[in-house]
Design a protein around this nucleic acid. Structure first.
Lengths: 347, 347
DNA sequence: TTGTACGCGTTATCAC
DNA sequence: GTGATAACGCGTACAA
């Protein structure tokens, strides 16, 4: 491992001061054009690379954004990551990514690591069982911008990027009603999580606005896994009268539910119409294709990083903005088409 | 933004030297137990956090691993990331992730960024059009361990983590032949990419070993996209005689191919049996369920980081190992079941 | 077991 | 337009 070239080496080579070299490399306006030119030449020629730590140490800034995500391997989250990476990369920021694996415990550890690594800002989608945000307190008190997305805590301190889950669920449920469904079931996730709670709310509002009674059996709370879909389907089959519409808070669960229903000889959408949530690619693989709420993960990732960088550049203040709501829309496919439908959205 | 606590502040508070504080915090054996105890107490009490840069600057080590991946939002790659993150996190390493978006150009930029950020090691799955590895030269010459996974270059310098693509393709094709297929088509990806080239090789070997002639139309080269699957299906339908087996290098493409064939009234597997590659969750959603080669992405990610960290810890030398091959196996499902089959592998 | 003194490479500050 | 100097916070050789 040979020795690294530093600005001193370049300075010596050119018989100028390290200060000038530093300025030159950073394109400081008050440096002679020719000098600058020479500096760059010698730098590349000597294989110079700037030392990020030394710079960070001095500037108290890392050009690094931390991300804490529940699980990396889901279509939604990886789309978000992709969007984040794109914008961050373009803006010259690095992304340090960690997963909480859906546990507060790891989320706490990861938050600490991010803090110790002095990320310039942090983006978080909280874990399944996160109930308070004490572990992010250091970020608040140090004034490090913190942005939540998708799974966000209910706390006035927090700036969040979300979609209008209540509205989306309302639209999805209303769509089922428009298709003639009169007895609709909602398969929900953990109601401690904001997104599922809000979707349930939208579901209920839609029923209420259409004078459809809400009973206990109208809502099945699950973990939205594939197995949960199977279990819920079996439960639905047992119901008397059997529901004619199902709104599921997640596409994977909806798909396994549909599969189970089909195996039981139930026809989708004739007997039961189904709507999912997320607009995962699998919606177009299951037969019949699944109607779903399009959740713009990639755009959410882009927006999150863009917003964070705006804060960092001092263009705006975190504490001012409270919630950024992205647009989502229902994509209608065969699973709710009492008549033959085509997709309302181009995709 | 209040001032950060440093080891000097702790030292002053305890009237001892910064050296002792540093040693204490790093659990140096030659520090008095009581002193250590007190140091930790005061540290937490004063809200001390170690300064990573200062430390990195001093130690010439960042505890950071860089990852360059073609695209983040695929099931395979996000599984790999998940596995990587898990091991890295456990070992106290951070992961800086960037995507090349399938272009060499961005791969080159990203490699430079990783180099400038002085990652301790780098993990790379190369882009679609990467033809040489000159841009990784700085890593070689500086002795920074570099590991390729999945999409690896053909270069003796490179240490790689892969599966035996040739063998896997051979097994998949042989399986089709065992099911009675006599006229098999292979839908391949860009043949410049090692994985697709090798899978084609395995496909050909299997045909040869079974005295099945290989003709030009036996291989359809595509980009393995959803559209490519549709196009390939249409091509297959036109063939005379029509093939009775298809081996596709990617599940997504296989699925869209199956959908198109079904729409044309072709029965799977009766008329045409289909095998995919990757064992993506969608294999269990398409009807009939798709037989596929299980590609252990999560395990590959774990292995990659574990191997890299071994190098970093000096436990082994990069240049010694050349290729690490992970096990993969064929998962048989309905899409190739001339008879009723159950999955050979538990999943 | 503890302390002194210096260097890691960069940039901010001030001076010219 | 350029330079000298200090400081960022930590780790370590050397000394005690």
């Amino acid at each position: 491992m040979e020795k690294e070239t530093t600005i001193y080496d370049i300075a010596k080579e050119l018989s100028i001061s390290p200060t000038t070299v530093s300025r030159g490399l950073n394109n400081h306006p008050a440096v002679n054009k020719d000098t600058k030119q020479k500096i760059f030449e010698v730098a590349t020629q000597m294989g110079y690379r700037s030392n990020t730590f030394a710079s960070s140490l001095r500037k108290q800034r890392t050009n690094t954004i931390g991300v804490i995500v529940p699980l990396l391997n889901s279509n939604f989250q990886s789309s978000v990551m992709a969007g984040m990476e794109k914008i961050a990369n373009e803006a010259g920021y690095n992304l340090i990514i960690s997963q909480s694996l859906e546990t507060v415990q790891k989320e706490i550890t990861n938050a600490k690591t991010m803090f110790d690594n002095r990320v310039d800002g942090l983006l978080v989608s909280i874990a399944y069982d996160t109930e308070n945000i004490d572990h992010f307190e250091p970020f608040f008190s140090k004034g490090i911008p913190l942005l939540f997305y998708d799974r966000v805590p209910e706390h006035k301190k927090c700036t969040s990027i979300v979609i209008d889950n209540t509205q989306a669920a309302y639209t999805a449920t209303s769509h089922l009603i428009e298709q003639g469904c009169k007895n609709i079931v909602h398969i929900s996730g953990n109601l401690k999580v904001n997104v599922y709670k809000e979707r349930l709310k939208g579901f209920k509002y839609a029923l209420m606005d259409n004078d459809i009674p809400i009973v206990d059996s109208s809502v099945i709370v699950t973990d939205l896994s594939e197995e949960a879909g199977i279990k819920a389907a079996k439960q639905i089959i047992q119901m008397d009268p059997m529901p004619d519409g199902v709104f599921v808070s997640n596409d994977y669960c909806a798909v396994s539910c549909i599969k189970t229903l089909k195996q039981a000889g139930i026809s989708i959408p004739k007997d039961i119409a189904v709507v999912g949530f997320n607009n995962d690619p699998i919606t177009r693989i299951i037969e019949p294709n699944l109607s779903s709420v399009n959740y713009p993960g990639y755009e959410m990732g882009e927006m999150a990083v863009r917003t964070l960088i705006n804060y960092l550049d001092g263009a705006s203040d975190v504490s001012i903005t409270n919630t950024i709501t992205l647009r989502s829309e229902l994509v209608v496919r065969e699973s709710t088409g009492k008549l033959k439908h085509t997709s309302l959205a181009i995709h």
